[in-house]
Amino acid sequence: MLYGFTFLVLFQLVGEMLSRGLHLPVPGPVLGMLLLAVWCTVRRGVDDRVGRVALGLLRYMALLFVPAGVGLMLLGPVLREQGWAMLAVLVFSTVVTLLVAGLALHWMLKRFPGRGEDGQ
């Protein structure tokens, strides 16, 4: 487990260094994800020790958002002045974004099912 975890952290670090060092508009962890995917492609597979830790972490990914999310308790004053307008923008904009992205891909997958793919 330690091996797999260290491996992931290593890619996170490299991603962080590249992101800061080259002033890329992508945060370190996202860059680390892309780099690890490239690494797996080059190695033609996922090391089992890495794969097991990765799936274990992903199983609880939602939990990892909680500490930052509790920061909502600091949102006091702006919320009192523009709270309802903010909520309305948030809800409608999220609905629009989900529908546009989901329907666009759904429609495109039907149109261009890809080579040897059923699109689902």
């Binding site: 962890p29 680390g32 994800m33 995917a37 690494w39 996922v46 990765a54 972490l57 890809g114």
Partner: peptide
Amino acid sequence: LGTATVALAVPLFDNLQRVRALLLP
């Protein structure tokens, strides 16, 4: 959270063939 984001590479790699086939959509 950052480490979990890196871990997303694993399911991404497992689906890489499909990503390539569905690039345009």
